[in-house]
């Protein structure tokens, strides 16, 4: 069960522009309008989940009821560096090159 303050607020309309930014996806104005319309409809539909009485019902987070699955602390060989860097879109001095990170 999760009980974080403010997380149980009543569902309001989806703000596609804001959520797309959270999800790191640029949308064209056309996409934004279309997705807003489509997702308004989908969100309205999925609110159906609030119809059945779920008080006292435990949430199902996993389809299997197993606990305590661990691995031993044993090192295993990883990937060859050449193979790793061959998949990288951009490389600098053995590092994955990215735009400047500002801290």
């Amino acid at each position: 069960m999760t009980s974080e303050e403010g997380r149980g607020a009543d569902a309001a309309a989806i703000d596609v522009a804001y959520v797309a930014r959270l999800a790191r996806i640029d949308l064209t104005p056309e996409e934004q309008a279309r997705f807003q319309r489509q997702l308004d409809e989908v969100v309205a539909y999925v609110r159906k989940i609030r119809e059945p009485d779920t008080s006292g019902i435990e949430p199902t987070a996993h389809a299997v009821a197993v606990r305590n699955v661990f691995r031993d602390d044993a090192p295993r060989p990883g990937l060859d560096r050449g193979e790793v860097m061959a998949n990288a879109p951009a490389v600098v001095q053995g590092l994955f090159r990215v735009p400047q990170i500002v801290e």
């Binding site: 999760t2 403010g6 997380r7 607020a9 569902a11 999925v46 989940i49 779920t54 949430p59």
Partner: peptide, 9 residues
């Protein structure tokens, strides 16, 4: 704000 209303439900 929406977690309980959607995912948890």
């Amino acid at each position: 704000g929406y977690y309980d209303a959607y995912y948890l439900t």
